[in-house]
Design a protein around this nucleic acid. Structure first.
Lengths: 260, 260
DNA sequence: CAGTGGTCTAGACCACACT
DNA sequence: GTGTGGTCTAGACCACTGC
């Protein structure tokens, strides 16, 4: 009530398609207010956000309403609740959510048995986006983009070959050196260095055969089938921020997915 | 309080590893009571379960507690809430959740553009489980299982070749005829005919090359890479009920996955 | 100990669907 | 209108963390 200036529908414009009920529950409004603060960087990754009581006071609603808003944010992995301590801005740096978006696991099932990935930056250059790169990223053909090519190896076996495209604007200043230096997940560096938080992604998976260049980088024969994984990753508000085309060897690993 | 006979921890056995807090919130207990009724078939698929008020009265708790229990069941897709009408036992028959577990979509993105799948049962026979089939299904080597082989085609293009194994007990009476007759998703028939509801599944995906038999059934060359999708589907309580090995052509389709 | 999130309750009112 | 789920509130108490 204190927040919603719009009355409960009623006076919907009498035109065609009244399809929009034009009603939004209070906790949804609170949620999007919190979302705006997250987006604006009012609280940094891994920092605590204000307590439920504080937020309730700020927005002039009950604690229960704030709770429901935060519940949704938590279920979308935007914040993490920790009983007795507070609610924290989610990050890709924490141990147990590292590589949250990487679904390739060793056949043994034990992610730790293989040790950490060895990362090699093959290439990193600025160029102008072609149409097929620009479109998914929401850019225009010819806009500046950054291309990164890298290989991940597990136990000396090159397993993942990735081509990444990043919009030039938000990632101004990203260089091969910066990429080579950083430790930990790339998305953690994007958060820390560029303030870009990957929040959601969609992948399209196919089985393909490698071309010559890919054979060389992954050290496989031309007839070896590979998993092609095209990922479009988004920040807040579904803004696309990274296009990634990966080739996965699946002779000792598999892509693991949960359905429910 | 009315439900939980166990006191709030406190008297944990003084041995090693007091790791189990031995505390379960009331709504979790209510949730598992509802789950038991679901499992026992007290309410059939697509039927409404009692209203929140009724359940609250039955279990002697407040409506809010029942609500939270049902919320979790709904988020696990075990139950579907419909405002103004009631809460219904989820099913694989409804239009908009049909093929919930099938992540292969046409490249055009429009699932309906290709029309319904044409299904052909290649084989259906009873046999004794080998070790690699028995283990994931929680059976013993030599136990009776049913094997089904089928091909799904879209617009005359054979696209999916699947080998299914089902435990002989729960699926007693399943024949090639029954399979050929039924309309709609196979999982919908499992619910209606055998009372088996698939609730959760995990898939392991690889890129492979087909063998001769597979080439023939899918009408592809020996060098065409295919997606190998091994699915283990579970009923309530994580009991495995189906092992499915699928080969997907990805020349006009892709496996679509959402990450968050 | 104080402060945080987590649970539980009870009651009021709203949005929606059926009849 | 009646009954359903959905929202919102206010207050009490519990469980966990860190000082």
């Amino acid at each position: 009530m204190a927040v919603n200036p719009s009355l409960p529908a009623e006076a919907a414009p009498a035109g065609l398609e009244p399809a929009t009920p034009a009603f939004s529950p209070l906790y949804q409004q609170i949620k999007s207010l919190i979302l705006q603060s997250l987006q604006a960087g009012e609280w940094k990754p891994a920092e605590a956000i204000p307590s439920e009581m504080d937020l309730a006071a700020r927005f002039r609603v009950s604690q229960g309403t704030v709770r429901k808003a935060i519940d949704e944010l938590a279920s979308e992995n935007l914040v993490v609740r920790r009983q007795g301590r507070g609610t924290f801005v989610a990050t890709h740096s924490e141990r147990h959510v590292q590589y949250r978006f990487l679904k390739l696991v060793p056949d043994s099932g034990d992610v730790d048995s293989q040790g950490p990935a060895e990362r090699r930056i093959v290439d990193c250059k600025r160029l102008r986006a072609t149409a097929d790169i620009a479109r998914p990223l929401g850019l225009r053909t010819g806009d500046a983009v950054l291309q990164v090519v890298r290989v991940l190896s597990f136990g000396d076996v090159p397993t993942i070959l990735e081509d990444l495209w990043l919009p030039g604007g938000p990632f101004k200043g990203l260089t091969a050196e910066r990429l080579a230096e950083h430790r930990g997940p790339m998305y953690a560096m994007f958060e820390a260095e560029f303030g870009v938080r990957m929040v959601r992604a969609e992948e399209k998976i196919r089985a393909v055969l490698p071309d010559e260049r890919q054979c060389g980088l992954l050290k496989v024969g031309a007839g070896s089938p590979l998993l092609s994984v095209e990922r479009l990753a988004h920040t807040y508000n579904d803004v696309p921020m990274e296009l990634r085309r990966g080739l996965y060897r699946t002779d000792h690993h598999h892509y693991r997915n949960e359905l429910s």
